[in-house]
Design a protein around this nucleic acid. Sequence first.
DNA 1: CATGAATGAGCTTTCATTCAT
DNA 2: AATGAATGAAAGCTCATTCAT
Lengths: 205, 205, 205, 205
Amino acid sequence: MKTKLMNGSRNNDKHKRILDAAVKVFARNGFFNSKVAEIAKEANVADGTIYLYFKNKDDILISLFEYRMNQVISLLNDRMKGVDDPIEKVRIFINAHFELLEQHPNLAAVITLELRQSTKFMKEYDNQKFMDYLGILSDIIKDGTTKGIFRNDLSPGIIKRAFFGMMDELGLYYVLSSPNSQYSCRMMADQMTNFVLSALLKLNG
Amino acid sequence: MKTKLMNGSRNNDKHKRILDAAVKVFARNGFFNSKVAEIAKEANVADGTIYLYFKNKDDILISLFEYRMNQVISLLNDRMKGVDDPIEKVRIFINAHFELLEQHPNLAAVITLELRQSTKFMKEYDNQKFMDYLGILSDIIKDGTTKGIFRNDLSPGIIKRAFFGMMDELGLYYVLSSPNSQYSCRMMADQMTNFVLSALLKLNG
Amino acid sequence: MKTKLMNGSRNNDKHKRILDAAVKVFARNGFFNSKVAEIAKEANVADGTIYLYFKNKDDILISLFEYRMNQVISLLNDRMKGVDDPIEKVRIFINAHFELLEQHPNLAAVITLELRQSTKFMKEYDNQKFMDYLGILSDIIKDGTTKGIFRNDLSPGIIKRAFFGMMDELGLYYVLSSPNSQYSCRMMADQMTNFVLSALLKLNG
Amino acid sequence: MKTKLMNGSRNNDKHKRILDAAVKVFARNGFFNSKVAEIAKEANVADGTIYLYFKNKDDILISLFEYRMNQVISLLNDRMKGVDDPIEKVRIFINAHFELLEQHPNLAAVITLELRQSTKFMKEYDNQKFMDYLGILSDIIKDGTTKGIFRNDLSPGIIKRAFFGMMDELGLYYVLSSPNSQYSCRMMADQMTNFVLSALLKLNG
DNA sequence: CATGAATGAGCTTTCATTCAT
DNA sequence: AATGAATGAAAGCTCATTCAT
């Protein structure tokens, strides 16, 4: 009585093959310009097979989001375990973002380029995972403020988004100019950490 | 440098009517989900008429970019005329961005949501105007650095993008949560100015 | 400000051409085995043109029903105008049915073969026209009964359907064995009239 | 003359289970809108199993016809055994038809609704069983005529079809309005017998 | 015999674009 | 310049059928 999707079972890697293919194809053409048939071809499966694993084309994109967000959030949780210092947490957050960007540039490109569209146009998809991600950010900021390390005249609700906007735009730049980017992920992470901490830290007498 | 029918004559405002209609329609459905026929209807012209004023659907979007960018750049040039203080320039830049956002939220939504896609997928369009816009930003930063007011350990090439990313993401948030946004444009502009200047200013003695 | 379908106007016969083509194609393959593209080809229009005149494939079939039913009902009304004798009315009804069958065997085939399907599966289509047609039949029967010419121990609700069933099945036979039918329409009409009247007439002392 | 697995063994009722399931599914959706997978699910067998027992989807429908026709013909032969009176035979024929209709309305619905389609579109299927069924009918009529009980001015070839058309249409009505039919099978059978016999009987002196 | 995942041809419908008027 | 009916390529998705296990 196997489940339809055989999640996690070996002997069947089609689900993953389709996702991997979709990343490549979406990164190449964008979601709207990508054809399901092209994904199928790239994954070496028949067109119809796609629909055994995904409800429809939108569902493939959503699955990519979820997959990526789980990846990021899980990495963050790992690294921040036992860390107390808000400054260190900021460092970890930014580094994790850029490391994943460097490791999976295609996936990052798709997320970065299509996330906004989807946020607006896939109405039924509430994008909870993304809110969770932003939540981690505002938790860090609030923690730093509570501990008296960060300034308290900034709205976490605004700053978390500004913060994300920086990472996202730098990521976009990296991804679009790849593989000839003028700046390395390492460098962007460092500059941004420097920049953000300067802005956040309370200046004491 | 359009010359099509720039005769200044009245009785022909169709070019503008089509652009205005496109803004509404794109804001409503996104570029890919918008139909040329819907734009035509919204503009009260025939489907075919669109093609007298624009090469194709992509061209309408590109025209919107150019229009918006000219608007922003021209507003910035006006306001910064005679201003020397880099701090003041930062303030002006941010304020201009959010003011236009507030005045033309639909247009802003379209630019913000579709710019990224287009940047990558309208291959032939090099988006010079956007580069000009970013250029103003790095000029301000470099100016501040030269004048010894801003730190000199930050890369203008990186920071200008981080800077734009903040505004863009905050704008997206405003636009998507409109008309019930938790934060006013005013407030976002102030918080961001505060944040950015804290990060940029050199700490002396 | 022409209306979409230009009903009745000359210079545009596409609506009719599509209907005529559909009759041929449906008669050849049946509704479900017919492709819209084949109808388009038969009508010498582009595939997309079909959708300027009809909502979808189902709508073409429904239009054929309506067209046929209007045709029949109108012919019946014409011929029965001023006729009082129920016996004569029965004759007229049967003759009209078989005449139209002979004149438009393809259309008849489609109606006969697909009407039943549609009755069940196009739930949203209430098939009022067909009920009107049956209504004429039961009116004739009731009239004959009231006038004391027909028997009064038969239920018009049942007999009208039995009556229609006879015509329909004979029509089906004619259409399926066409053009080599063993019996002419004339002969079937006469035999059926004879049969039905024998059954309906009251036997007086 | 199936030989596939007619071993009389229990542990294998799949053939019948599939047929029963097909009746339900076809009655629910019609032949063309029914999916083989749905039949398989309803029968609690795998999709592929269907093809061990039937050549293809068409073959399932054909098997249902054959099954039904055998059932009817066998019932008729039973009941008419030893019966000589043509009037009584007509009564038996009609009653048998409506009894089976009442007992297996789903099967009747499928036969009634899909028989016509199939008659024309399953080219290779010559529908001999249906011809046999009609043959019984014309035999009855001819017998009555020969015996001088029925009129001799009616063509058996025409009347047998008119006769069948009545039963079929009444059956369709019953089946479609089920389970809230206005008329019972009993009543329809009686009315029709009455009607038909009035038409068939020779009026003497 | 039985399974059900996989296949891929095939279909309806959409919509950017054209062009005769 | 303006129209909008017509075009037809294109693509998402379905489902009867197969075949490796």
